[in-house]
Design a protein around this nucleic acid. Sequence first.
DNA 1: GCTTAATCGAGACGGTACGTCAGGTCTTTGA
DNA 2: TCAAAGACCTGACGTACCGTCTCGATTAAGC
Lengths: 221, 221, 221, 221
Amino acid sequence: MSPPARRTGRPRSAEADRAILGATRAALVELGWSKLTMGDVAARAGVAKTTLYRRWTNKSELVVDAVAALLDEQLELPDLGSLRADVEETVLRFAALLTRPEAGTSLMAVVAEATRDEALRERIRTTIVNRQKRLVLLGRERAQARGELPREADPAAAARTADMIFDVIAGAVMHRTLVSADPVDAPWARDFAEVLLCGFPAVAGGDEAGPATAQKPAGSG
Amino acid sequence: MSPPARRTGRPRSAEADRAILGATRAALVELGWSKLTMGDVAARAGVAKTTLYRRWTNKSELVVDAVAALLDEQLELPDLGSLRADVEETVLRFAALLTRPEAGTSLMAVVAEATRDEALRERIRTTIVNRQKRLVLLGRERAQARGELPREADPAAAARTADMIFDVIAGAVMHRTLVSADPVDAPWARDFAEVLLCGFPAVAGGDEAGPATAQKPAGSG
Amino acid sequence: MSPPARRTGRPRSAEADRAILGATRAALVELGWSKLTMGDVAARAGVAKTTLYRRWTNKSELVVDAVAALLDEQLELPDLGSLRADVEETVLRFAALLTRPEAGTSLMAVVAEATRDEALRERIRTTIVNRQKRLVLLGRERAQARGELPREADPAAAARTADMIFDVIAGAVMHRTLVSADPVDAPWARDFAEVLLCGFPAVAGGDEAGPATAQKPAGSG
Amino acid sequence: MSPPARRTGRPRSAEADRAILGATRAALVELGWSKLTMGDVAARAGVAKTTLYRRWTNKSELVVDAVAALLDEQLELPDLGSLRADVEETVLRFAALLTRPEAGTSLMAVVAEATRDEALRERIRTTIVNRQKRLVLLGRERAQARGELPREADPAAAARTADMIFDVIAGAVMHRTLVSADPVDAPWARDFAEVLLCGFPAVAGGDEAGPATAQKPAGSG
DNA sequence: GCTTAATCGAGACGGTACGTCAGGTCTTTGA
DNA sequence: TCAAAGACCTGACGTACCGTCTCGATTAAGC
């Protein structure tokens, strides 16, 4: 059907695929992105380098897949009864994941590489970004079911909002963890959820200051 | 004092320093982080590789300095009369900067590298992170002067808040630009400022839904 | 007996054999020994690599057979009425053959390979060396029939002599053509025949000098 | 002067040159031509592969130089008082050399390679062929001094003759040793010297048969 | 006409070496 | 002492070919 069903020749070993991705993750844990080599991954997987290059054109694509598998497997949306609690927990889990040596660094490195490589960019978008956005979509749906958020009429606007939330949450955690190199702990998560739900003036000083200044600009919308 | 006062021998050429950083930026523009080579930088700067290594211990540190200089030179806080306007403009400027080939990629790559290199992490913190936090601090001060934000009593809490804001703004822009690979344009900036100042329920549907559900959890501090 | 009489199963394609040897020669012409690859030969022959390895254990053996077939097909002893004329003509023909890109190079390469490979050495001996010695044997017989050479009493000595002649003729032509990389033309062939039949002092200066000095050493034999 | 006298930069290590050629010869002895690898040679020489490739563009050129050095060092013309004795001894020595694993095979392989590589052919000619022709020239001179050979008037003809003798001797020994894979021993050397000095009919049957048939063809020069 | 078994094509596989490239160091001569 | 030049070692790169191995599909010979 969609894949033309290669009929002929020896079929690719599914075993090898698994071994390679596993070896990649193990190597990332031990060595980190920059010291990981294709030869080493091949050796760990008990596989020839050519087998590796037959499936992934380079280190970046391989690592994207390995990281994507990790994210798929590790990230699940909790259901703690309130949007705020779900956000806090998700932030903590995501931060914990990014702190793992195989995840955060690799993601950064791969994204850096992608700026010069359209194919890689596409692969990141499909296997990581789009797939993790499900968390935002699911979280919103639950919040709407609970009555915490209104149902949105315009689906385009809804999609835009989801993208925004995804970028804000993922971006903030990533930046805090990897760029600022500060810990994401429970207090931070609480403050962050507050900012996300109420705006930062609520955190900055007192609740009374917030509403007064945070008006939409007169000319907008 | 700080420089141990080298007295003897041929002094280092200040010309060389400038040429090297310039060449590094030019090379980053053309080639990007991963294809940039020390040999190439040296050649562009009309300098021997030795000279280069006498000043920076490795590629990463060199690039950190080049990027830091770029950020120092390009990022300034606008004063548009309101906190919201300042945030929107800053977001746009920062996004424009990250889109430049020498900036975003390099930053990501260098951060990725830093996860395994304490010295590099420190250099990033001092020459990039801490130095750009000035924008947040200055912005808050102005907003306080305008009466848009209250003066905070607890300096530790004030610092924490500033860090948070910095991570949220920088992180969101960075993630949108480089990971999601979507454009940061005026509408996005407007929405983002709205989230930042009022919380995301304000964007999600209608103002009425927001306040009702986004209460602090009962048991929290 | 010699073939273990495979009774059952699909028989090997004789077509394939021919196609492979042909493709090998074509590839040798185009690429030479060192750039010839089994995969390429298979592709040219429209045959799978497996088919190829089912018949020849490796590249060297395949090439030996291809070259042997070439020699068999191209080398024939002329009958020009005198030993000298036959020698000259044979030398020219052999040189012409060695100059062809598929012959000389391959022969050298295969011989080089054989020094570490007894099986290959044996194959060369049987399919090339012994088979081409027929030219020497036939030539001598004809010369004896013409009365140009005496019939030899001792068959062992006769064989030794034939071997010697074979090595001298083939070796000289091969060395001149491939090592010295000088042309074997009619004058050279004439001189060579002179040396072979009369000894080199006859060529060196004048006939008178030769016999006088080229005596067997007194103490030998 | 002729080399523009590179003044600047670290000079090439003469030590390395020696180590590499030595390692090459050692590797040839142990492994033979086809199993010798550049990486292995580099490792044995305690040198990086790049250092090796900086001096020789490929395996063949390296081996040519190694073999040339071997020949220079091992081949010397004996002076046994007569041309015949000198020839016999030289033949034996040359055969002994070719039998060594690093010499004969390598020479064949390199010559095979050279048929497709003009630069290599030139290198063989200058470093091996021309340099070893000295033996022929020297041998003739001595024989002339002894009165065994006439002095030749025409220098061009003299050169042609020397080339011929060189090809006949080297070619015969090489073919016997490597192609026919038969031993070159004292009896063979004696027979060969006889052929070379008196023509092969002298060996074939009786001396009386030789002169009668080995006349120059009527129509020639 | 069915069974049997070796052959065929295709192409993936584990290996080994290739020749290149970049990182970072060291050794010259010259300023 | 520093600078320019460039050789050096290290180690990874991605490719090429080797010879082997699985596939499913043929194709005769024997029953």
